[in-house]
Design a protein around this nucleic acid. Structure first.
Lengths: 350, 350
DNA sequence: GGGTTTCACGGGAGCGCTCCCACGCGGGAG
DNA sequence: CTCCCGCGTGGGAGCGCTCCCGTGAAACCC
């Protein structure tokens, strides 16, 4: 008895936190009743409930998550998997938005967010081991490049999973949250055509991302519907610098260019700067449409016409979907596609 | 026996992962020996070690973290506490850098990063409860505003903690990682004075952040040393828009202004744009020094002279410090102050 | 009224792991 | 040869919790 006490004291460096047993005896009930009172007190008398509640406050009791996990086989945490976390990628405001949104959704639950960033290769194997190891109750995967094999891997584990951004392989039926990128591209084309622009070029995103491909497909479809030529397409990397480079190519290759659709606002910003530097007026000579409705769109003093992409909301939706999948195991989740919405501003005025 | 098996199977939805006991019997050793082999095999014969290693691979064994935590009282995860997580703050590349850096450091350990974002008020109480509840082995706190009471709170829990950015209250002795912000401000002043600028203004950061205050103090000290007048000081919010606004005030208030120190690159960018829009040439009429050496500094085609602020490295250092504090409990950690370094570019040419 | 159901509660078992301790066995010292 | 020490090993206990089941008392039905 004495030994036990001293060992305990030593193990936690002098202060041991109260256990459920302590709580129960302080409240004058049994361990079982205390447990019931804590976990949504059905079958608990009001008096017992009150006594336990009081004791919780008095003792500053916090359940031991490890002990609880051990028996419930639930960890109370979910993973946010971000492939390829080099600094450049992390700087992308996209991830900030994702983290913000997911966190927002999880705030209402008692789930905690564990960040899992994994590079390609070995590290990815490590991440997968972690996910399979039952350390988390579910995962949100920021779908990115075609090469990722997360879909099949996670599908095989049976771990509740939600993708942000449509994964390449949707056959597995894993739910995802995405924007209607196709429609977004189509809206851009229709808008530019609608204001009378006819010689249109596009700066698309990387071909290994579904969002980029969908936006481009929608764009081309929109042009077709408007009876316009497809026009030149250059693939950029979603960055401002990439957009600037692509804009130069576009100008060189297409003299009478009067409208550009860039698949991200950052690229659109590069386009505007480049055009202006080359003496073209925006929107008079060249109208520019971006994508994302990023805060930075107003950076050059000109409002940027763009397709809204409520990333924080979308990430929050993903978080809620996952929370539900964890709450009700076996439930079939529906993917959520946000409708695309064009925000018209100065860069395509008149 | 039958009941037990079926319950287990049900609990994990048809597939139960192997336990240490399974591992041991597969390897032909006892549970104890298997455990020893896994956790750094002292007192384990080479044969036993090999047998266990082989069985791990064969069974795809992963230790149950909950069970381990229960007895070791270590959770294998650390918290990254980010106060005030509204979207605007998260968009700050600073946090992206912090996350990247911390993750980088933790990659070498088997610690996982749990993200804890807490708003002021109730939420902060919840976060503190979480930290006190023994759910993590340590915490990294992104020190931000004066109002935060993390220092005292965490100091009281005895939880290993490292701050990123010097906290207001250093009396508690909690270690932190920071840049020598004072010296950074001083370098800016000396540099501008050195290239012959004499009518200098500054755009400082919020007064409730140590970094902002230190940079300003250093700046003023540098001016004094150079025998220059202190000049006007305007407090901005570290954003580009804030920098632009402040620049207007500076111009209005100080006609002959020929040099500006902005306490962040984003603000410096706003300054440059505003100056140019007002017809002032940079650097000829007005030289501008920023702070952070942010990637975006080249955005307007002009290289920005700035004080380097290796945020990713610093965050990684914080991560390593924390890992060490967890590894060797009771060890006294030293704070790490990165020296300030001025990067001279076009915005202060000649 | 007896029998049955309902309800709140308490005790026991066990989740998978680590740690302590006891055990056997070989080799060096006396 | 005996004693002892150290090394590798195995079993037992227990970490704090949840869940199952048994118990007694109150409430209900016919």
């Amino acid at each position: 008895m004495n030994e036990k006490t001293s060992r305990d004291a030593l193990a936690v460096a002098g202060r041991t936190s109260p256990t459920l047993e302590d709580l129960a005896s302080a409240a004058g009930v049994s361990r079982s009743t205390a447990s019931r009172a804590i976990n949504g007190g059905s079958k608990v008398s009001p008096e017992a409930q009150a006594a336990v509640d009081a004791a919780i406050v008095a003792l500053g009791y916090t359940p031991n998550r490890a002990a609880r996990s051990l028996v419930t086989r639930r960890t109370g945490s979910v993973a946010l998997v971000i492939p390829e976390p080099d600094a450049r990628v992390m700087m992308d405001p996209y991830f900030a938005a994702v983290i913000t949104g997911v966190n927002e959704a999880l705030r209402d639950t008692d789930l905690q967010l564990v960040l899992l960033m994994s590079r390609a290769g070995d590290d990815s194997a490590r991440t997968i081991r972690y996910l399979r190891g039952g350390h988390v109750d579910g995962a949100i995967v920021v779908s990115h490049h075609r090469a990722d094999d997360w879909v099949e891997t996670l599908g095989a584990t049976g771990l509740p999973t939600v993708f942000i951004g449509r994964p390449w392989d949707t056959a597995s039926g894993i739910p995802y949250v995405d924007l209607d990128n196709f429609e977004g591209g189509r809206l851009a084309a229709r808008h530019l055509a609608g204001i009378g622009r006819t010689r249109l070029g596009s700066i698309a995103g990387p071909t290994d991302m579904t969002a980029a491909v969908d936006r481009l497909d929608g764009w081309l479809q929109g042009l077709r519907e408007a009876g316009l030529q497809p026009g030149p397409v250059i693939h950029g990397d979603f960055t401002t610098a990439g957009g600037a480079d692509a804009a130069k190519s576009l100008m060189d290759g297409t003299p009478g260019l009067d409208g550009v659709f860039a698949a991200s606002d950052l690229m659109a910003l590069g386009v505007v700067d480049t055009m202006r530097a080359a003496g073209r007026r925006v929107p008079e000579d060249v109208a520019v449409v971006g994508f994302d409705n990023h805060d930075i769109q107003a950076a050059n003093g000109l409002g940027l016409t763009t397709v809204a992409h409520p990333m924080v909301d979308m990430a929050a939706t993903a978080g809620r979907l996952l929370a539900r999948a964890i709450e009700e195991p076996g439930i079939a989740l529906e993917s959520v596609i946000y409708p695309a919405d064009l925000v018209v501003r100065g860069s395509t005025a008149s």
